[in-house]
Amino acid sequence: MKLEAHNLTWSARQSPIVSDVSISIESGEMFGLIGPNGSGKSTLMRMLAGLSKPKEGVVTIDGTPLKQMSRRQIAQKLAFVEQQAETDELIKVRDAVELGRTCWLSALSPWSEQDDLIVNSALENVDMNHMIDRNWHTLSGGERQRVHIARALAQEPSILLLDEPTNHLDISYQVAILDLVTKLDTTTIVALHDLNQAFKCDRIGVMQAGKMIAVGTPEEILKPTFLEDIFGVCVHTLQDPENGSTVLSFHSVKDRT
């Protein structure tokens, strides 16, 4: 499904946090969102997910504005994994993933075996199927993050919004989760801090001070001179001797002199 944003603006107490952002994400595309801390990535994603109302602008799914859909209809199409979501409840891993089915259930279509299968496969996808009876508060940060991703997968969305899905994960799960997301045929928007991971995206949007200042393919965006401007670090490119792909290496600006 196609996700579009037109002239999105959001501000907190007069100061603009996101200003005039328009993007159009094609069906099946994997779109990366990069930018410094506080540049407005999470705020933009919350608007795209319909969780906060833009002050101006509209978000549409396949041409239909989110405003005209119920929460349930949105959730059947779009799943969102927040940067952080915690609980004090003694909830179990499987229960947390089952929450993803909420938007498909009603009094007339109660929980079925089909739902069990979907939850099982979501748990398998993030390799949490051996921990289904563990209590939430006993999980490590990365395990919690994988459960949230499994919950989103259990929603069977056509559009998946992931806000820094890999920030708590060890390197093997970072690779595994990103590969999984790349393989899914969902439309995906993913906020990332690891710029080397951003090479896996089809296109990348760069946020700076609330504006989308550039959109393009990884080859166009992930260039040393450009990144140095945005992040204020010194960037070198290296070649991976195995497959010839580009790798970025970062140094503080001082090192250059």
């Binding site: 969780l51 929460r71 949105i74 927040e82 979501a85 915690e86 909420t102 938007c103 929603q155």
Partner: peptide
């Protein structure tokens, strides 16, 4: 009952899974 379950991770998480918060 299901909607109340969905509030476990907060209002936004509940809205994300389709609850009319």
């Amino acid at each position: 009952a299901r909607s109340l379950d969905a509030f476990t991770f907060g209002k936004d998480a509940a809205a994300s899974v389709g609850v009319a918060v």
